[in-house]
Computed example of a mutant assay.
Amino acid sequence: MENTHHGESPSPDTPAPQQKNGKTDEQTIALTKARLAIDEVDAQIVELLKTRAQWVHEVGRIKKADNSPIFVPERETALLGKLNRLNAGVLPESSLQAIYREIISCSFFLEGGLTIAYLGPKGTWSHQAALKQFGKSCELIPCQSFKDVFDMVDRGKAQYGVVPIENSSEGSVTAVMDLFVTSSLKICAQINLNIRNSLMAAIPREHIRILYSHPQVLGQTRDWILRRYPNAELVETSSTTKASILAKENAAMGAASLGCPLAAELFGLNILEEDVQDQACNTTRFAVIGRQDTRPSGRDRTSLLIRIQHKPGTLAEVIDCFQRHGINLIRIESRPSKAINWEYVFHIDAVGHALESPLRETLEELEQHCSMLKILGSYADTDVV
């Protein structure tokens, strides 16, 4: 009988390839070969990570010698940008950044470690933001209030703190903004986090009579609540995690919570509905607060706190100053000074870095119109995480 030529059907007398677990011998061999190749690449990655760790130790030694900070936001921004360019879209950008977030977090640990304060307990959106920025190799300390976060950093019990400063639908977190008036701490970096709130409970949704959550989340889900639970009692809590704890404890009373879905896993609740926020693109901007000044990154934002002189047209002169220098203002709002009745301070976010033109010259000119000009920080204007 003639041999089968390429492209022809095999002879009925030719034995079929053996099959194991639904795979032919050829498939099994190819799969084994691919897995061995992956194993070899994994071994190379580990060796490269070990080499990287040696250089990280050296960087840590140099930083310790000249008392430089371990966390250098502008360096991190440049590194992640370079990695995205090297990747050229092969890996999902979010996956690549998540991998390197933990590599960078490990580097912090190897350089001596970082302690980060945030509004706790575990499971809050502040907790999620801290994990996104600093990873799992840093010590994360939950605090009971925003003031406690500031105090932890101010007293040196934590190198940095993570606090929310504004939400895309509810505006500024005024309790945090007011703390900057008297604090000497600076904004070193920002974290933009996409907030996707969930309805969580240990009871069926038709039994819900009480909704617990943080005031910001109740505001972000206001329309959804009116549609789904118009008669529910709304109870404000100090954090979304506290809301989930209360929902679990008071389940027999018809309690549920709104907040971070991680809380459902932590406290044994069921996620009854996801994405209950009124706006699909619901983003909260968090500030990393510390004592250091951040160097320019090439794409920066500067947060200012000013008190203007009590003269007609002074605020117009301040705005005109920014306009003449071509500075774009991202945000401007007033808050009571808390020092004198009916006296106000203005929080302003401007494009640019305080050390670079034209913002540097703008700030020098602004001092003529302000009784107080406080630079809360210049930092990289990062995108949504």
Results as ranks from 00 to 15, higher is better:
H5M: 12
H5W: 09
G7M: 05
S9F: 13
P12A: 15
T14W: 14
P15F: 02
D25A: 13
E26I: 10
T28C: 09
A37V: 06
E40P: 00
H57C: 11
H57D: 15
N67H: 14
S68R: 12
I70C: 04
V72W: 00
T77M: 08
S94G: 04
S94R: 13
S95Q: 11
Y100N: 14
S107F: 04
F108L: 07
T115Q: 12
T115S: 15
G120R: 01
K122S: 12
A129Q: 04
G135N: 02
K147G: 15
D151S: 14
D154K: 13
G161I: 10
G161L: 06
T182A: 12
T182I: 08
L185W: 01
Q190A: 05
R196L: 09
L199Q: 06
A202V: 01
H207Y: 06
I210R: 03
R222D: 09
L226A: 13
R227G: 05
E233I: 10
K248F: 02
P261W: 04
A264K: 05
E265Q: 14
G268T: 08
L269Q: 00
Q277T: 11
D278K: 03
Q279T: 11
R285C: 15
R285N: 10
I289D: 01
I289H: 04
I289W: 04
S303G: 01
H310S: 15
A316M: 13
D320Q: 15
L329A: 03
Y344P: 05
V345K: 02
A354T: 15
S357W: 03
L359A: 07
R360I: 07
E361P: 05
L366I: 04
L366E: 01
H369I: 04
H369R: 14
C370E: 03
L373K: 04
K374V: 06
T382I: 14
V384T: 12
